[in-house]
């Protein structure tokens, strides 16, 4: 029997049954494929006391220790699978910002071992990510200062972003002597790595007038409660005693920026905002007696959040737009 003649013998019922069987098999295959990823952690992850990984960084932190400072513990290195073994519940903050690896080690003053500090070197993959975790954890009552543009000191700690790295140097006590040693080590690290993070365009477009010092930060995800609005640089402003903020976020394309700006506009309208007249291309919304301005320029989404009045919001938005133009950076 030839193939063509064989086909002609297949009845409609047989064809339906055949497709039914194939669909059933496909459903079973899909089910197996899906279920195989649902491991029971009680069975697959019962390592009760995992050993700390050995440091594998490209350079040894011990080599950066200044005179009079000696290693106090073995080096440790953690990756995304093991970061929780070091910092537990705070690990998710780093995961959301693109964490790559952590290298940590304790050092003590040779003449007083009770004075020790631990250095945490978080490799965040990019300077943006490093600045994100730096800004999200920035403490109040901080003292500016340190070896990089983005650094600050507390009585027992030094915190800084440098290139793709976020560093914490945490002292066991609030000691000037100890923190001086930690500062020297941070400086040595910066010298070894080179470069800095100040070249991020979004950081440079916030006008200085009215800007609250050290208020620039990077929100890694869901800024202002808007799903998908990630990697958003924000800055706080003061105007006649009232506070408001501005934000700038770069998207992958002009179209993505346009869609994001529309999403933000719709978000505020959905929550009761009233659209106001504004310049072409700018959405101006009155919501709860504050003003939102949203627009996009090239790959950038730009906005002013909770401004006290329309004029103030539009003035700041215009300044940011002008700065972006001056920077000759449309994100492409």
């Amino acid at each position: 029997m030839s193939l063509s003649s064989e086909k002609s013998t297949i009845t409609a019922m047989e064809r339906r049954v055949g497709f039914g069987v194939l669909l059933g098999l496909a459903a079973i295959a899909f089910g197996i494929y899906t279920v195989q990823f649902r491991f029971n952690p009680a069975v697959t992850a019962r390592q009760t006391l995992p050993e700390a990984a050995v440091a594998q960084s490209e350079f040894s932190l011990a080599d950066l220790a200044p005179n009079g400072v000696a290693p106090f513990s073995p080096p440790e290195r953690f990756d995304p699978d093991t970061l929780s073994d070091k910092i537990n519940g705070k690990a998710e903050l780093y995961f959301s910002a693109g964490f790559v690896a952590l290298t940590a080690r304790r050092f003590a003053l040779a003449d007083d071992p009770s004075l020790w500090f631990e250095i945490f070197v978080y490799d965040m993959g990019t300077a943006r990510n490093a600045f994100s975790v730096f800004s999200m954890q920035r403490r109040g009552d901080l003292e500016a200062g340190g070896p990089t543009v983005f650094s600050y000191a507390t009585p027992n700690g030094l915190f800084l972003a440098h290139g793709r790295y976020y560093l914490e140097l945490v002292g066991a006590k609030a000691s000037d002597k100890l923190m001086a040693a930690a500062g020297n080590m941070a400086t040595a690290f910066v010298a070894r790595v080179g470069g800095d993070t100040a070249e991020i365009t979004e950081m440079a477009v916030f006008p200085e007038k009215g800007l609250v010092g050290d208020s620039r930060s990077l929100v890694a995800a869901d800024a202002f409660g808007i799903d998908g609005f990630d990697q958003v640089f924000t800055a706080q402003y003061l105007n006649d005693g009232g506070g408001f903020s501005a934000y700038v976020a770069r998207r992958d394309s002009d179209e993505a920026a346009r869609v994001m700006a529309a999403t933000i506009r719709d978000f505020y309208l959905e929550y009761g905002g009233t659209p106001l007249d504004g310049p072409d291309g700018l959405s101006v919304i009155d919501i709860l007696d504050t003003i939102e301005v949203i627009f996009h320029q090239g790959r950038y989404v730009i906005g002013v959040h909770e401004a006290p009045d329309k004029d103030t919001a539009l003035a700041l938005a215009g300044q940011i737009r002008q700065r972006l133009q001056e920077a000759d950076d449309d994100g492409n």
């Binding site: 954890q137 507390t154 009585p155 027992n156």
Partner: peptide, 9 residues
């Protein structure tokens, strides 16, 4: 900055 903290501030 919990649960690890790191600064007395």
């Amino acid at each position: 900055n919990g649960p690890t903290g790191g600064s007395v501030s």
